[in-house]
Amino acid sequence: MSNHSSTTKRKTFAVRVLRKDSPESESYWERHDVEYEPDMNIISVLQKIASKGESSSGKKIAPVAWDCNCLEEVCGACTMVVNGKTRQACSSLIDRLLEESPSEIVLSPMSKFPVVRDLVVDRKRIFHNLKKVKAWVPVDTYSDMGPGPKQSRQQQEEAYPLSECMSCGCCLEACPQYLKIEVTRKNGETDEAFEQRQKEAYDKGFIGANTISQVVLFNNNPTGQMNAKERTDAIMQEGGIQICGNAQNCVAVCPKEIPLTTSIAKAGRAATIRGLQRIFDK
């Protein structure tokens, strides 16, 4: 059993949160003293802060805004930077964090995505990139056509870890090549025009390890491989796999331990072959 005798005597602990009221406003730090209870995680801390409605100086405050849903690390919603490390708030256990850093726990939003408010960021770009590389199996119809192609246990065991990617963004936050793209709406701009400008901006940036790994997943699926070329072409455009600087931070921070660098290596080989093929096809 885990035994945290050093922390069980605590009455309160300090939490510092980097807040921001809106995309246009300045960020500011706010300190909270939170009552200690056993088995807490960052989610229960933020719930307590919301319920209390005041900071450590006794000032009335609006609850900290944050994203979450499943609370068991399968939905990918609650990614944030906890004590300097990008991770899921739900599986960040207070006892563990206080061992790492007994004086205080520091929460900030991911830095590679535009902040919407406080710890909430806009991760639309992740889903845009999945569209760009056609991360799906293009079946003819949803009508009953019998089972899919037979697959070996080995194929399944290679595919399964890649299909656990929950688009949480940890690998992107940790990547030196993945840079923040923030497009601000112009006065009077329509939704459509704004979205179009956003998409164009996203297309110039790096697609990131998670997207490359999804390309490998679908290119190895027996049906998905029929249009592997299209996906490989998509990761050879501007912002493609060539941007990867091999820092290998992605694989170190992935909460699902997805072999992202293995995927990047596989996709890299496919891209090289595809490059040669394109020369000969000319």
Binding site: G146, P147, S152, R153, A159, F218, G224
Partner: peptide, 14 residues
Amino acid sequence: DLMDRLGVTFNRTE
């Protein structure tokens, strides 16, 4: 069967 065709990584027998 449909979910299998859509690429769900169902566990396999030997």
